[in-house]
Amino acid sequence: MSDDRIILDNVSRFYGEVLGVNRVTLSIPPGITSLVGPNGSGKTTLMNLITGLVRPSRGRISVLGVDPSQPQKLFRLVGYSTQFDTFPKGLSGSKFIFSYLRLSGRPAAECREVTARAIEQVGLVEAADRKVAAYSKGMRQRIRLAQAIAHDPRVLILDEPLNGLDPLVRSKTIALFKQYAAEGRHVVISSHVLHEVDMISDQVVLMSGGYIVAEGGIRGVRSEIQEERPMQFLIRCRQPNLMASKAFEQDHVVEARLLGEGEGVLVKTRDADRFCRALNHLALNGIDIEGVIPVDDNVHSVYEYLIGGEEATQ
């Protein structure tokens, strides 16, 4: 199996008769990969499978060539920030990170240094010596993240890592993920916050009912479904009527709707590439186009089309 990818090969997991995930086949490259799906879609199960916290009922998993059933190797490569909001009793933030780091066998002095660095990265220096039990939700989220990144892993698995974070910390955390991805590491995130997923992900994995519904770059996924769900473009121009009639001349355009005064034309097409070429042609032939905005070329729209709107949260 590949040494630079997280690979799930036909993986299924059942909890008795309840389906966790079913026949999941994925190959996750370095970069930021977001798992998106409604509650119960199998995102956490998938993360737990990748990190060996649960075992697959069927199929094989490899994380950079390591089987998750070998924690002694896996967790030298992987850091996992779970969604479980519980901690061992009586430990301060720094003691918590330090104590579990010691399990890796590093010397105490090195663990202290690494702990301090991780705590600094998540901005918890002032609260480091306070008991975790006294932390706010956002601080608990950050200390979990600190534990996941403390040993400088090549793979970071993060279950809803942005939950409970204030906007400033949220943007710093996202910057950290981007930095990790830029360094060629794997960052796998599950999130409900679709606009953030859209903003930071190199690829998305859409899940529903334990199945992978779609995966890949968001634009690639969007174009794959344009036959059933024509892509929408908002075109701002000075001659909206002419623009609408010219658009209708294209056989792949299924709808061209004039919006209110000065708001432009909304065009739905089954072939975005050909439509964009046609727009270039129209612009060259004298139609003054001020702007072209893809309206549903994002995770939120893809999510709604593939999974259903009622579960999309933000």
Partner: peptide, 20 residues
């Protein structure tokens, strides 16, 4: 006890063999 406190996973997320 750790299962009930939901804190056992922190051990399982470290590079320690289960036997150890």
């Amino acid at each position: 006890g750790e299962m009930l406190d939901k804190s056992l996973h922190f051990y399982l997320l470290t590079p320690v063999r289960r036997e150890v």
